[in-house]
């Protein structure tokens, strides 16, 4: 645990958010009922609360965990990128293909190199979950219709 430089960054982001919410609350409609404090009252109060409390990490940063570097940072950034890719193509190429590809890439990213694991686990997870959710539980997971197959 080190003195956390991220605390000051977080505080600046929170202050910016507080200023934005406070300003944005003035664009909200007036109350419909006469005695109702209105839709802007709570956001405005929260903006003040967040803004004031953000001064604590700004001026008195706490010990915290440093951001990862090197291999560890690569794992996290790579995983987020793979998840973003997953979200983008899920509806286009279907659950099974997306999941198999994601699992394979994620396992590789996490250092798995055994061919059996790299083949069996992605296929097992993709097809297994698809079967459980779509067939047994009736959850509508997207399909690609690739090669006329119902996956």
């Amino acid at each position: 645990m080190t003195r956390n430089p991220g605390d000051r960054v977080a505080a600046v982001i929170l202050l910016a958010l507080a200023v934005f919410v406070f300003a944005y609350s003035f664009t909200m409609p007036d109350p419909v009922q006469e005695l109702d404090p209105g839709v802007a009252a709570f956001p405005r109060g929260l903006a003040v609360l967040i803004g004031v409390l953000a001064l604590v990490p700004l001026f008195r940063p706490q010990p915290g965990e440093a951001l990862p570097r090197g291999l560890y940072a690569g794992r996290v950034i790579g995983t987020v990128a793979l998840l973003a890719g997953y979200a983008m193509v899920l509806d286009i190429i279907g659950f099974v293909i997306t999941t198999v590809a994601f699992t394979l890439a994620e396992l590789f990213l996490l250092g798995i190199r055994r061919p059996v694991t790299l083949i069996v686990m992605p296929l097992g997870v993709g097809l297994g979950l698809f079967y459980v959710f779509r067939t047994l539980l009736g959850v509508a997971l997207p399909t690609s219709g690739l090669g006329g197959l119902p996956i």
Binding site: T79, L83, Y86, A87, L90, T99, F102, T103, E106, L107, L110, G111, I112, T117, M121, V125, L129, F133, V139, A140, L141, P142
Partner: peptide, 20 residues
């Protein structure tokens, strides 16, 4: 290394399946 990819996939399914 085998556990957390499955947690991620279940997280995706969980978030997608409520409203597809």
């Amino acid at each position: 290394a085998l556990l957390w990819p499955i947690v991620l996939i279940l997280s995706i399914v969980g978030s997608y399946a409520v409203r597809t």
